[in-house]
Design a protein around this nucleic acid. Sequence first.
RNA 1: CGGAGUGUAGCGCAGUCUGGUAGCGCACCUGGUUUGGGACCAGGGGGUCGAAGGUUCGAGUCCUUUCACUCCGACCA
Length: 568
Amino acid sequence: MRVTQLLIPTTKETPNDATLASHIFLIRAGFIQGVGSGLYNYLPLGKRVLDKVQNIVKDELNKANCQEVSLGFVTPASYWKESGRFDKYGKELLRFKDRKNNDFVLGPTHEEMMVNLVKQSVKSYKALPLNLYQVNLKFRDEIRPRFGLMRGREFLMKDGYSFHASKEDMQREFAYMEETYKKIFTRLGLDFRVVEADSGAIGGSGSKEFMVIADSGEDTIVVCEKCEYGANIEAAIRAEKSCEVEPPEAVYAKFHTPDTTTIDALSKFFHVDPFYLIKTVAKKALFDEGESKIVLFALRGSEELQEVKACNSIDANELVDISVEELAEVGLVAGYMSPTIVPEGIEIVFDTMLKDATHLICGANEADYHLVGIDLKGYEANYQDIVAVQEGDTCVHCANKLRYTKGIEVGHIFQLGTQYSVPLGANFLNEQGKTQAFEMGTYGIGVSRLLAAIIEQHHDEKGCIWTKETAPFTLSIIISNIKDQAQVALAEETYQTLKDNGVEVLLDDRKERFGFKMKDFELIGTPFALVIGKNLADGLVELVQRDGLSKESISVGDIIPTVMSQVW
RNA sequence: CGGAGUGUAGCGCAGUCUGGUAGCGCACCUGGUUUGGGACCAGGGGGUCGAAGGUUCGAGUCCUUUCACUCCGACCA
């Protein structure tokens, strides 16, 4: 392709709202164009990369016996009401009515549609297992879209769904998809990690996320220094934790503790390690149909509440902060709340670390008073894991240290079980001739987000550095001086020959100066550039590698063989 | 939805306080010079100043309403 014929609107200036390298470079290099909050147009370069990424995804899935379909983007809301997600999914689900006043949603994911598709056509175990996928637009009305393609509202996603006659077979497929996904991300040239995850709004159990390691990632993941263990902070677990500091010896008593509303202050006041303090956190939990209630979470003072775990522990849709006034209304004293003295009707969840714990100090649910000598041995309560794993905690698998890192979620696979097939009545006849609900798995890859993830991992201060499999073009030919007939002639000839050999070549034939074209090459980031410039007088041209910008002089006669050997 | 802010040429901004010919840089077009690191000279095109209403002889500027977008917190591929 000739640059003079391609739409590549590169710019020197950075859009003011772009902070991430991927966002800045994808826009500056003319891959994408913003059209509204979280909405982007793909220009020719962006579309080429998108197709490449998509093709790798499809190629590996097809090899793994998955079948591609394409489902409707606009979905009748009735499907979502049937599955119960119409309320559960929340504001991200864009709902609207057609001219006949029927409810529709713009698909943010397609479990309902796919289950219905299979339900209508698969009646026997003989047709199983079945793994169907699509690469299609999704729309999620994100509260705050940002970071360019990283978190758009409209985005391209590959979503796959598998159907099985037994749980064992579903788990076999789940493991197989994990391997397939690893192949995909490896081919894309990404440094990633598979981690255990929370299932979120999709539901189900045993889900894993594929995280591209990048400082700009929005997710915190917990990884082990030694072994393979990795988990999203929302689902991470650790070995039991103890405290070396001696427990405070005290008999049960009430203490006057003015202005001691934080764990820190309390720890100083009693000269006690926060491990022996109980932190009581109040949240408002939101449920279906606008219901809400105040819930308390009790944990050791040395720990932090993990909101997703906490939310799951009470099966709520969401947890939100609550004001001191709201607490007071129901008889809770902010800063002095107690896990053992709780007003009527308030639910409380204890962290498992507190089970049978002794020598504790907690609030008295009375202003300026704390209780000491609390003993929870044998105390009956709802104990669940609701704390966040911290850096330095111990790995459950190998007893080494855990640490945090940041990741971009580019894939997520779930073991759904019969979560959707039962409410949607998706059944088949098993070998015994009995009706049975499909066992399902679901598998997602954020295709458009991958473009951003690739750039986050592969760029320098000058621009993009595409990997061979994802680059919009493999090689740029730069004509240094467009008025030099010899340079133009050689460039044209080389361009044609390489094209004939199946190399994707970009010929920069613009009437611009050398520096201008080099900057554009560096910004766009094709893996190689062939500079045809003034050294041509000595029969030499330069082959530049985008990654590292190393240069190699080659003689005119060697251009084709050299390029061909580098490119493949 | 909570808090903060911005809407003026394709992009980045000034002008708004104190009402009086709508500007600058980049980009774009024409001609010329230049050609190994985003060149220079000369000429040129491009705007319902986010929208609606109001005040005024006169509104980008003042008032009211509204919409959109961005940034900081909770969602997710």
